[in-house]
Design a protein around this nucleic acid. Structure first.
Length: 399
DNA sequence: CGTCCACAGGAATGACGGGCGG
DNA sequence: CCGCCCGTCATTCCTGTGGACG
């Protein structure tokens, strides 16, 4: 076959072959389907809790628990959307605001998002926190809004900034002459309640609800329902679905992971030009998802943490903090970079530990001190490969 | 059985960039 | 432009500690 016809062949294939996907957005985690199987109970209860708002009175604050991918966010958004539609048709002044505190990052940016959604202009930065919350509350009063503010991954907020902000919010209603502010907190972590001031806790958890993980069976049904919408007929079979469900079920019934898996498997199959998504595509997808996540993590590290990660690759396997620090300093000096203090390095190392790039366990060597045993959790080859892409790191890696 | 190593990790503080209101 | 406030990263100083050694 000549080169020309070879190329033509590729193009022809693309044109004539119908895609495996009907609508791949259905498999994205942001997608909220028309019905959420196995969550009817939760939907009903939340709807009931929120319903006073439709009569213009305040509703209870609500706290939702459950591991990742158990449908907390989806259910919340689902109910809020329905509530908003009803309110709109009744011309009620109801506002629902969603904010992921981990993505927002700081207290200020949380308030910033809240005011933005409400239509109140707030400077990007520069104001005192008290001032911002003051303005927001005044604004709510003056507009007579009934506001539901959803704080997703609320444990993150509390761990990083304490409960000051929540305290302000929970007592907001005493201060609001008109309008109301209700909170929905979503958390993966059951223990985060211990970090809360008892007053805040009792106010925030007027209502509580736990989302159980999905079982493998449930995941399978969820997947097949979505697959029907996402893929064209006959482009995926039960074996593949089962595999995706089983894999996600083994990781605490995480539906989001199951859907990711399915989507990536589909993309791989499509790129390969396969006629249907098969088991092997799902298996490749697992690897690819993990790898992508790791490459992202590697790239988003600040410079010194990258150097530290490189320094953590010792003679063989593991080394202690002291050795890593020594290698790190050498690495810096060899490249005329000012090294950081050892104190700073300890925190950077425990961050690497939390990111899962390195394992760090405290051990005691008795007479010879107490330290952390540090061993990289990824292969040197992968790190080298990723960092060679970086023009500055390139020659550092090659030594 | 006490000492003392080699750090862990908390608290306070500071430098710096960003951005307001006045 | 100044003074104030925020967030981030870093330094300095500090107290705490498991267990082998003497």
């Amino acid at each position: 076959m000549s080169e020309n016809s070879l190329i033509k062949d590729i193009f022809d294939k693309v044109l004539t072959k119908r895609s495996l996907f009907k609508d791949r957005n259905v498999l994205r985690s942001e997608y909220i389907p028309k019905n959420l199987p196995f969550r009817e109970e939760q939907i009903k209860t939340i709807a009931q809790i929120l319903s006073p708002l439709l009569k213009g009175s305040r509703c209870s604050n609500l706290l939702l628990y459950g591991k990742t991918g158990t449908g907390k966010t989806a259910v919340t958004k689902y109910v809020l959307k329905a509530l908003e539609e009803t309110a709109n048709s009744q011309n009620l002044n109801l506002k629902t605001v969603y904010c992921n505190t981990r993505i927002a990052g700081t207290e200020y940016r949380i308030l910033y998002e809240l005011s933005n959604y409400l239509g109140l202009k707030i400077p990007f930065t520069g104001l005192a926190l008290k001032e911002v919350s003051e303005r927001i509350l005044n604004y709510i009063t003056s507009m007579k809004f009934g506001v539901i503010f959803t704080l997703d991954e609320i444990d993150f907020l509390v761990k990083n900034s304490g409960d000051n902000l929540l305290y302000e919010f929970t007592r907001a209603n005493e201060r609001l002459k008109e309008g109301s502010l209700s909170l929905i907190g979503i958390s993966n972590d059951l223990k985060f309640k211990e970090l809360l001031d008892p007053r805040v806790l009792s106010s925030l958890s007027e209502e509580e609800m736990v989302f159980p993980p999905y079982t493998a069976e449930e995941l399978k049904i969820i997947l097949s329902e979505r697959a029907k919408m996402a893929f064209n007929n006959g482009c995926i079979d039960d074996v593949t679905l089962n595999l995706c469900a089983a894999l996600a079920a083994s990781e605490h019934g995480d539906a989001r992971r199951a859907l990711d898996l399915l989507r990536v498997a589909g993309e791989i199959a499509e790129r390969e030009g396969a006629l249907k998504v098969e088991e092997k595509h799902a298996r490749i997808a697992i690897r690819k998802i993990d790898e992508d996540r790791m490459i992202d993590a590697l790239n988003s590290l600040p410079l010194h943490q990258k150097l530290l990660l490189l320094a953590s690759f010792g003679s063989q396997g593991q080394s202690h903090t002291g050795e890593v620090y020594l290698r790190y300093v050498k690495l810096c000096e060899a490249n005329s970079i000012e090294p950081l203090t050892s104190r700073r390095v300890t925190t950077l190392l425990s961050e690497l530990d939390m990111l899962g790039l390195v394992s760090a366990t405290t051990i005691s060597k008795g007479r010879y001190g107490r330290t952390k045993k540090i061993s990289p959790l990824i292969s040197f080859e992968v790190v080298k490969k990723v960092y060679r892409e970086d023009p500055f790191l390139k020659h550092i890696v090659d030594s």
